[in-house]
């Protein structure tokens, strides 16, 4: 009947498991897919990322040259990063801040 007593006592003296978000933000985990970033100077505007993106989040313009990402559509799957021929797309571990 009192199997949780030890746990309760320990919890009394321990600091909370939860964080006071947004005051305290969880540090980004290395390798995590947080948000998509482009090194635009290397991009050749080939449009491969736009064609492959499952969420239609990327729009690439040829004339004038433009590359835009709708961060609210992006599902951070990382498929575009894999298909980019110039490897100019990178996934950063920090999450997108609204």
């Amino acid at each position: 009947m009192f199997t949780l007593i030890g746990n309760i006592v320990r919890c009394l003296f321990r600091k909370p498991v939860t964080r006071l978000y947004p005051v305290e933000v969880k540090p980004a985990v290395a390798g995590c897919r947080g948000q998509l970033h482009i090194r635009i100077e290397e991009c050749i505007f080939c449009g491969a990322c736009q064609r492959r993106c499952p969420a239609n989040a990327i729009t690439v313009g040829k004339q004038p040259k433009s590359w835009t990402l709708d961060p609210y559509r992006c599902i951070v799957c990382g498929y575009c990063v894999e298909v980019c021929p110039k490897k100019c797309l990178v996934m950063r571990p920090e999450h997108f801040k609204p």
């Binding site: 949780l4 746990n7 309760i8 498991v17 985990v29 290395a30 390798g31 995590c32 897919r33 599902i75 951070v76 799957c77 990382g78 996934m91």
Partner: peptide, 29 residues
């Protein structure tokens, strides 16, 4: 409710290891 919180606290360890290994907590892709 206490059990609910305890179990979800334990679950958090698994979510964290999935984030470290797969790059996301739930949608591993």
């Amino acid at each position: 409710e206490n059990l609910f919180m305890q179990l979800w606290r334990v679950r958090e360890h698994i979510l964290e290891i999935m984030e470290k290994t797969a790059g996301a907590r739930i949608m591993l892709s």
